[in-house]
Design a protein around this nucleic acid. Structure first.
Lengths: 116, 116
DNA sequence: CTGCTATATGAGTATAAGATCATACAGTTG
DNA sequence: CAACTGTATGATCTTATACTCATATAGCAG
């Protein structure tokens, strides 16, 4: 049956693609990656995230909102402060994997260019 | 030792964050996700990707370039046509995982809102 | 109540990036 | 050589979004 070359995966709707894309978009900002990492290093509330990242308060607040919307971190008010917590720990592993993949790929490029 | 609350992860440079972010950004476009999937379903060259996705030829060409830059797909000229191939198969698994995560999270939200 | 602190948010601006059109380029065919 | 095909790309427009500033909101202290 040489004609049946095409894999027939279940169709993915436009809306699903949009949703998945916006999830990836949340991770497509250095500032948000920085915030996520700062949270992992111990910074819990907005002020701590501000000092840890060097971003402005308004900026951190908005980015945290994005992360919350994506379900990656959670946030609860405790008195005056807003406590952030990791809601999806798998993101950490994902970022590490991506980082390692990039390192691997880039070092291969370095090797290829090595003799030039 | 109650003072040592802070996890000390290795520092990540701004450039590394930018690199990781741009990798994620490549997956943050419905059109690119669509192209990637079309390639997986059997569409190999640009023309086939155009008909499979409904995007314009110029559009597909540019998006494929992005995917190549990110190391996700490869491309080689064969005569007149440009053959695309999956360069990083792990992307497929990643997308499936994200998709399942979103489904899980959204269905939980539906449950929460169910009585309202 | 009056401040003071922590956070959120509206408005405005700047920049990045996708879509489209036209066209250039490369390889094939006659 | 000319004509045609498949692909890439410059120019332009448009939209999305990150950043900043100022201000609003909410809780606490006096």
């Amino acid at each position: 049956m040489p004609a049946a070359r095409k894999k027939n995966l279940p169709p993915v709707s436009e809306e699903a693609l949009t949703l998945i894309a916006s999830w990836f978009r949340t991770l497509a900002e250095p500032s948000r990656l920085k915030i996520r990492r700062a949270r992992e290093e111990g910074a819990k509330n907005i002020t701590e995230l501000v000092t840890a990242t060097g971003l402005t308060q308004a900026n951190v607040s908005r980015h945290v909102q994005s992360l919350v919307d994506a379900g990656m971190v959670g946030r609860r008010r405790e008195g005056l402060t807003a406590i952030c917590f990791i809601a999806d720990p798998s993101i950490t592993e994902l970022c590490d994997n991506v980082c390692n993949n990039l390192l691997k790929r880039l070092s291969q490029q370095v090797k290829k260019l090595g003799g030039a």
